[in-house]
Amino acid sequence: MDRRQFLSGTTTLAALSLAGSQAFAQAAGAPEKASLKLGVGGRPLLYYLPLTVAERKGFFKEEGLTVEINDFGGGAKSLQSLIGGSVDVVTGAYEHTIRMQAKGQMIQAVCELGRFPAIAVAVRKEKAGEIKSPADFKGRRIGVTAPGSSTAILAQFAMVKAGLKPNDAAFIGIGGGAGAVAAMIKGEIDVISHLDPVIAKLEEDGLISTLIDTRTEAGTKALFGGSNPAAVVYLKSDFVSANPNTVQRLVNAHVKALKWLAAATPEQVADLVPTEYHLNDKPLYLKAVKNSLESYSRSGLVPQGGQESVLDMLRTIDPELAGAKIDLAQTFNGSFVRRATS
């Protein structure tokens, strides 16, 4: 799919999304909780760009919400903060809703932000001759945003598919910004499983050789055999039940962000985000944004096939989930997106 096709598909939905969210906002009552704490694991990453757009464009404020964004080292840490009660909502990987249900914690996604993982797995250029596929990851040091985060889980899934065990490599948390680039430059890791703009920066500098690329639909299908949803907005299920107006307005803001992204140019995105997101290389950031446009959700809804794909991935790498009874219908509540786009 090229950029023109992507924009064609998103622009129609986006127009409906904005009109629908504005109409619902006018009809909805006041938010039950107008001030929210939100957790995110690596805010500068393009994986979380819809969140940055919602904040920088003032969409939260338009919906009557004050959102304090807490940036953690990885998605697993954001999840821990939600469970611990220090944040109300998280933008993070959809897979967390499944993993927590298996542990008896009901977490519910309410809006899809990314329809592909947008994660690339790459090897240090000088080791490309000896590390040619995930089958060669045994005993290697793999840099991820944080152990237990989606970057680690995707790499583990690739290892299992290649005949290894999930713990056959050492997973090292390197964060989500310039520190991740530095870890590769310093030789602290052999392999990296990460996102743009980190991957784009390492590729541009000729430091890595990419083995797996789920920034595109083709790359995602090559690894998973189909779709595999990525970033979502998720909360505790009891919070969703107790605060429907708040959640609706939160979803409205993110739907507006997806709409804005559908029509935005890479230059507009680069001008919107904080300059430190560019990693001191704005032209490269523009390239990374252009390459990422295909990965953002076009509907805000997690498809059934995508839910099943993520569950299959988790069961492949996690023995605790292999026999667990999971009700996928409880992991995603699409009613808020449907109201925002109807």
Rank of each mutant, 00 (worst) to 15 (best):
M1P: 13
R3G: 02
R4L: 09
L7K: 15
S8R: 15
G9N: 10
T12S: 14
A14H: 10
S17F: 14
Q26M: 14
A27S: 15
A28Q: 10
A28H: 11
A28Y: 07
A30T: 11
P31C: 10
A34G: 03
A34L: 08
K37P: 00
G41R: 11
G41D: 02
G42Q: 04
R43E: 01
L46P: 02
T52I: 09
G58D: 00
G58W: 06
F60N: 04
T66Q: 07
V67I: 10
V67S: 05
F72Q: 03
F72E: 00
K77F: 08
S81N: 05
I83C: 09
I83P: 03
G85M: 09
G85P: 06
S86M: 07
V90S: 05
T91C: 11
G92L: 03
Y94C: 05
Y94L: 04
M100H: 11
A102C: 04
A109W: 01
E112I: 09
G114F: 07
V123G: 01
V123H: 01
R124E: 01
K125S: 05
E126I: 11
E126S: 11
G129A: 13
G129L: 12
E130L: 14
E130A: 15
I131E: 02
I131V: 13
P134L: 07
P134A: 08
G139H: 10
I142V: 12
A146V: 13
P147W: 05
A152M: 14
I153A: 12
I153W: 05
F157H: 13
V160N: 08
A162K: 15
N167L: 13
A169Q: 04
G173L: 10
A178T: 13
A180G: 10
A180H: 03
V181C: 07
A182H: 13
I185H: 13
I192W: 06
I192T: 09
H194M: 04
D196F: 06
P197F: 05
L202G: 03
D205T: 12
L207E: 06
I208A: 04
D213V: 01
T214R: 08
T214H: 05
T216K: 14
T216Q: 06
A218W: 06
T220L: 04
K221N: 04
L223K: 07
A231E: 06
A231N: 08
V233L: 12
L235C: 05
S241F: 09
P244M: 10
R249F: 02
V251I: 03
K256D: 03
A257Y: 07
W260R: 14
W260F: 08
L261S: 06
A263V: 12
A264H: 04
A264I: 06
T265K: 14
Q268F: 12
D271Q: 15
L272S: 04
V273S: 01
E276L: 10
E276A: 12
E276Q: 11
Y277T: 11
H278L: 09
L279D: 00
L279M: 12
Y285F: 15
K287A: 05
N291D: 08
L293M: 11
L293P: 03
P303F: 06
G305R: 13
G306Q: 00
G306L: 00
D312E: 09
L314V: 11
R315F: 00
T316M: 06
I317F: 05
D318A: 09
L321M: 07
A322C: 10
G323K: 15
I326S: 01
Q330V: 04
T331F: 02
F332W: 03
S335H: 13
R339L: 09
A340K: 09
A340F: 07
